[in-house]
């Protein structure tokens, strides 16, 4: 399956999962909203251009927004993490030329610790910005702190489960460079 087809299917599945499963779950608490859809951005291939990355992330965010009728609320954090992604990947990749040998960021291509850090940082940035926008519309500071922490925790748990359930086989491509 080509990368393009694979990512189109992923896009649709992530949106459907977020709209019809995660957003339908009765809230356990005011602070807890499970988010998983932004994992799509973290899983995009290394080779995507920065322009493409920004555009695809904006599309992902705005599609979700039109389903949840909050235009712009999810698009803004998506664009932010898409913009920061190349910088963090450059810092975190320790193996020489890992981005040439593997297709996309994963535990196997980046190593467990760098990949965990990569997921943690972007989950946090995404929720921080998302809840910040929400907070500016209404709510108090406690709401902001509590929701960022709780939502980040739940999201990390979900991402962990997703990584375990859908183990992505990564081929080591030798004849690159």
């Amino acid at each position: 399956m080509s990368l393009l087809v694979k990512n189109i299917i992923r896009f649709i599945l992530f949106i459907l999962m977020q709209v019809y499963v995660l957003s339908q779950i009765p809230p356990l608490h005011q602070f807890i909203t499970p988010y998983l859809y932004f994992l799509f951005i973290l899983w995009l291939p290394f080779t995507i251009s920065r322009f493409g990355l920004l555009l695809v992330s904006f599309l992902l965010g705005i599609t979700l927004d039109y389903f949840l009728s909050t235009p712009g609320l999810h698009a803004a954090p998506c664009v932010l993490i898409a913009y920061l992604r190349p910088f963090l990947i450059n810092i975190l990749i320790s193996q020489e030329g890992a981005e040439l040998n593997y297709a996309e960021p994963s535990i196997k291509s980046m190593g467990f610790a760098p990949y965990s850090l990569y997921v943690l940082v972007f989950t946090f940035i995404h929720h921080f910005y998302l809840v910040l926008i929400e907070w500016l519309q209404f709510g108090n500071f406690l709401y902001f702190l509590g929701k960022v922490t709780a939502t980040t925790g739940v999201s990390l748990l979900l991402i962990f489960v997703t990584e375990m359930l859908f183990f992505r086989k990564q081929k080591f491509r030798t004849n690159t460079a």
């Binding site: 322009f51 039109y66 909050t70 235009p71 712009g72 609320l73 803004a76 664009v79 898409a82 913009y83």
Partner: peptide, 26 residues
């Protein structure tokens, strides 16, 4: 170019959101 495109998308998102919150019409 990338930075400018990023800023444009951010502004677009925030404008959509603010406009929607004021009028409830996306």
């Amino acid at each position: 170019f990338n930075f400018l495109f990023f800023v444009v998308l951010q502004i677009l998102s925030i404008v959509l959101l603010v406009q929607y919150n004021q009028t409830h019409q996306a």
